[in-house]
Nucleic acid binder design. Sequence first.
DNA 1: GCCAACGTTGGC
DNA 2: GCCAACGTTGGC
Length: 139
Amino acid sequence: MAYWLFKSEPDDFSWDDLVAKGEVGEEWTGVRNYQARNNMRKMALGDRGFFYHSVKGLEIVGIVEICTETHPDSTADSDKWDCVDVRAVMPAETPVSLDTIKTHPDLQDMAIVKQSRLSVAPVTEVEWAVLCAMLGVEG
DNA sequence: GCCAACGTTGGC
DNA sequence: GCCAACGTTGGC
């Protein structure tokens, strides 16, 4: 299984919005960046990810699961953009802030530190384990 | 194929 | 609200 990080502005689509969608989840639409799209193309059913609030909050607030295969983005006006559906698995017991991530020695290579604009990014197994422990959740 | 101009993202 | 970083566009 692979691990990922999804960023969203809470004013646009928040963790609570995803929780409200329940087991069915929601299409992760609107990605118009090739690198982020390519990351989504590598995702598989059952992969897990972090849900991060950008702009407002600046912290990881929950765990999501990829609940569809990659499929065309229904909101795109061309056929080159794909997405997956994600559903909320569990909230973070203790959200982890960007500031904390930036100061943790094991998390310096994360895209959120090095490439802040990438909205869908891969997470390594080590990063996953470290962050799950900090979040107070079972990876 | 290069690069300047422009638009968007996201932290501060 | 500002601005740095980055990606995309389009003229040459």
